[in-house]
Amino acid sequence: MSSIPFYAKKFVSGINIEEAFAVVERLNDKKICVTLDLLGENISEKQQAIKFVDEYDILLKKISEKKLDCYVSIKLTMLGLDIDFDFCYNNLSQIMRIADHYNIRVALDMEGSDYTERTIVIYERAAKEFKNIEIVLQAYLVRTEDDVKRILAANGRVRLCKGAYKEPPEKAIKKMSQIVENYKKLIQKLLLEGQRICIASHDDDIIDFCIEFIEKNNIPKDRYEFQMLYGMREKTWSRIREKGHNMTIYVPYGDQWQAYYARRLAERKENVFFVLKNLFKS
């Protein structure tokens, strides 16, 4: 398909780098940072992974050339995590060498719980070699409190989100009120002890809590940022930025948009209502 249909265009910036960069430049004009996500995951052939590595290499170089306020997010299954651990790490290392050369951040997106441990192990190893690596943790997983300690012991650079994958009750907190409370508990420790903390949430309760905590504890602005998904609550982005806080928008692009769009609705049924609600919420 050569273009994004109207119903997905709100959430996916485009098919190619040029379309994605047009969105990045518009957001940069509003003093908003972007993390770009080239769509793709769970590949089964090494050549597919190598192709993604090449695309990320080009992406990083073009971000540097255009001097954009932008970094990138990557899923390790698109680099071959399902194929071979060392193959995946070598692919990530190639990307990280270029990212460090241009001083561009790279965030390891967190996938389902079957990948959590392997993703953290790769992050811990990469954090010893590369300066610009960071990772995503999910507040609804039971294990995340222990994982926070591991990230703080590595380089303390993390994005905390609630979590969206469908998980069994022995692995994940199910009640939203309890997820929110766990998020608040974890984010306090991260903001006090972390090096760069990304507060990824559309929840007003969490956003207000974090702003109050940041101001009360005089957390330096270069140690945190708020994050939201492209297409969600644009007026809220602007309000947070106008209050003097760093704001980053997660912007996906690529020809595999359909899988991304469908999965985001299907991962948890709550997401369907969340997306519909946020179509009309600012």
Rank of each mutant, 00 (worst) to 15 (best):
L186T: 02
P168T: 05
Q178M: 15
L191K: 04
S201W: 01
I120K: 05
D114S: 12
K171G: 00
C198V: 12
G156D: 14
D203A: 05
D147N: 11
E193S: 15
D100V: 09
Q138L: 02
E167L: 00
I179D: 00
E170P: 03
N103A: 13
Y115E: 02
R143E: 08
P168S: 06
I104M: 12
S113V: 02
E145S: 05
V121P: 04
Q188M: 06
D147G: 07
G156P: 12
K162I: 09
I151Y: 08
M110G: 03
E111R: 02
Y140Q: 01
L108R: 07
K189I: 13
S177H: 13
R159C: 02
L190S: 11
D147P: 03
R150A: 14
K184V: 00
A172R: 02
A200S: 11
M110Q: 07
Y183W: 09
I179G: 00
L137R: 00
D146R: 14
L160A: 06
H202K: 12
N103R: 08
F130V: 12
L152M: 14
K171N: 04
I187E: 08
A139P: 02
Q178Y: 13
N182H: 09
V148H: 08
E170C: 08
Y102N: 11
E145K: 07
T144V: 05
D146P: 00
R143A: 11
E129S: 15
E117Q: 08
L191A: 09
I173P: 03
S177Q: 15
K128W: 12
H202L: 11
R118M: 06
C198L: 11
L137P: 00
V142N: 08
A153W: 11
D203M: 06
C198Y: 04
A153K: 15
I199C: 12
D146N: 14
Y115T: 03
V121F: 14
D203G: 06
I122S: 14
D147C: 08
N155E: 14
T116R: 01
A126Q: 10
E129Q: 14
V158G: 03
P168Q: 03
R105A: 04
I197H: 10
L137F: 00
H202T: 10
K162W: 04
E117M: 02
G163I: 07
H202Y: 06
G156K: 13
I133H: 05
E129Y: 06
I151Q: 09
K149M: 12
S201D: 10
E111C: 05
A139F: 01
V121W: 05
T119P: 02
E145W: 01
I122D: 07
E117S: 06
L160S: 05
E111D: 10
Y165H: 11
Q138H: 03
K174Y: 13
K131H: 13
G163E: 08
Y123S: 11
K128N: 13
A99Y: 08
I133T: 11
D100L: 07
K185S: 06
P168R: 04
D146S: 10
K149Q: 15
V158Y: 04
V148S: 10
L137G: 01
E145M: 01
K175A: 15
E129M: 10
C161H: 00
S113T: 04
S201C: 10
N132P: 01
D109K: 00
I179Q: 01
E124Q: 15
R125V: 14
I135R: 01
K185N: 07
A164Y: 00
L160T: 05
Y123K: 10
